[in-house]
């Protein structure tokens, strides 16, 4: 999205992925403002690996320069919030699919989300496999196979709480966007 607000242009990126993949943490790491999260306590037993979850969206912001601002939106991970995805996805420059490397039970959901997004838009994206610092994390290439991702789709190791891997994911996405713009 390229919007204009008092001559300040905004562009939007979306962070999507299954429940508890680390979307909020990712945005928190890079955002210059306290992430605006609409969270509530989790009621479902199956989802009680954390206390709260995003029910509407996360919002983070990064000032690029005097006239450009990057907005980062996190989408709720659960399918019951699927109606939100289209709204958030509209006008995005690119998106990041976050996957929890330690929870293979969420891989199917991740693939479903990716299929849904790619069915509605051909916007550039990368896959960030989060929690790679944990002992029980699956290997990046194993996750690629588990999600049936082709070799040309970037699958990047990530630790959403650390700046370096988060930067790497964002830069990888931007380089794809850059390439795409050259081709247009």
């Amino acid at each position: 999205m390229a919007g204009s607000d008092s001559q300040v242009q905004t562009v939007k990126m979306v962070i999507t992925g299954p429940f508890n993949a680390g979307k909020t943490e990712f945005i928190r790491t890079v955002s210059e403002i306290e992430v605006v999260s609409t969270e509530q306590n989790i009621s479902s037993d199956a989802e009680k690996v954390k206390q709260t979850t995003t029910v509407a969206l996360d919002f983070g912001r990064l000032t690029i320069d005097k006239s450009l601002v990057l907005h980062l939106f996190g989408t709720p991970g659960q399918r019951r919030f699927e109606f939100m995805w289209d709204i958030l996805a509209e006008g995005m420059l690119g998106y990041i699919l976050m996957v929890d490397s330690t929870r293979p039970e969420t891989f199917r959901e991740a693939r479903y989300i990716l299929d849904t997004f790619s069915d509605h838009s051909d916007t550039p994206f990368v896959v960030a496999v989060n929690k790679q610092d944990l002992e029980d994390a699956w290997d990046v290439e194993d996750i690629r196979h588990a999600l049936r991702l082709k070799d040309d789709i970037p699958v990047l190791p990530c630790v959403a709480t650390e700046m370096k891997p988060v930067k790497n994911v964002l830069l990888s996405l931007l380089h794809i966007i850059q390439k795409r713009l050259e081709e247009e």
Binding site: Q9, V11, I64, D65, L68, L70, K167, L170, L174, L181
Partner: peptide, 10 residues
């Protein structure tokens, strides 16, 4: 625009 984004994030 994209170059500015890349420079800032770097």
């Amino acid at each position: 625009l994209v170059n500015r984004l890349i420079t800032r994030i770097r």
